[in-house]
Amino acid sequence: MSWLSKVRNSLGGLTKRDTPDNLWTKCPGCGEMLFTREFEDNLSVCPRCQFHGRIGAQARFDQLLDAGYAVLPAARVPENPLNFRDSKKYSDRLKIARAANPFPDALTNALGTVEGRKVVLGVQDFAFMGGSMGMAVGEAFVEAVERAIAEDCGYVICTAAGGARMQEGILSLMQMPKATVAIRRLARAGLPYIVVLTDPTTGGVTASYAMLGDVQIAEPGALIGFAGQRVIQDTIREKLPDGFQRAEYLHAHGMVDMVVHRKDLKGTLASLLEYLERKEVA
């Protein structure tokens, strides 16, 4: 018996055909091949170069909230209000996105606790149509703020978006002032609003609720900006510094309050919620 046959027998007769397709993950940062399970067990952070991979809403809830959290009902809004169609109907694109994702739109909220501190946590999932901001996202944001006020707790949102959803035109842009008004209501209630900027956070999301937090946190290496680097360079006709839209550069220049490693994010949020919670007047 050859050594290869012995190895296969020791692995229970595992053949190439039996090997799962997602056994390995290539790190986008350093290019190393990682065991997918090892990568996911490390919070989807490369153990070699610390590159922070993109994660979905479910993984984010599991990482940040204590056990026993409840996902809040999805916002209900008209679908395809403009009867938009390009190469496909917008309604068909929504069906495709929903079939490939666990939640019905780009922003999902949950009610739970972070190390015992009650909170409403919202997560934008870039996998759902690039995390784009449409009517459902705007309504979900407002409903989350209203729930936070009703529960007398803070609202934390993890942003990830390519901007406004083009298929909803001006209706998507109207979500910017809508979310801003909701944040103002949360502030008047004396409750904290914390933003966690994840990769990427761009466009109209950056121009509205992503940059209005009481505290702005960013994950390491996250791309954060309004317009793309090439667009800005062509507009001002100047070469921009390397990494000027990355979390570390923005932190050094005062646009972000802190850059926090994913393994430290839950503890950081718990401390901030404790510090910012409304104090009863004696």
Rank of each mutant, 00 (worst) to 15 (best):
M1H: 13
M1I: 08
R8E: 14
G12F: 09
D18N: 06
P20C: 03
W24K: 09
C30V: 07
G31M: 12
E32I: 05
E32T: 07
M33L: 15
L34T: 12
N42V: 00
L43N: 09
C46D: 02
P47A: 00
C49M: 08
C49A: 03
Q50P: 00
G56S: 11
Q58W: 10
L64G: 05
L65N: 04
A67F: 07
A67T: 14
G68T: 03
A70G: 03
L72A: 14
L72T: 03
Y90K: 04
R98F: 04
A99R: 15
T108P: 15
G112F: 09
R117V: 08
V119P: 01
V119W: 15
V120R: 02
V120H: 04
Q124N: 13
D125A: 15
G130Y: 03
S132Q: 09
S132F: 11
M133Y: 09
G134A: 10
V137G: 03
V137I: 07
E139F: 01
E139C: 08
A144L: 05
A144P: 00
G154I: 03
Y155A: 05
A160E: 11
G162E: 09
E168Q: 12
G169F: 09
S172Q: 05
Q175T: 11
P177W: 10
R184L: 13
L191H: 02
P192M: 04
V196P: 00
T201D: 08
V205C: 08
A207V: 01
S208I: 01
L212M: 15
G213P: 15
G213M: 06
D214F: 08
Q216S: 12
E219T: 13
E219K: 08
P220Q: 05
I224Y: 01
I224V: 14
F226E: 10
V231R: 11
D242I: 05
Q245Y: 13
G254K: 13
V256W: 04
R262L: 14
D264C: 10
G267T: 13
A270P: 14
Y275T: 02
V281Y: 08
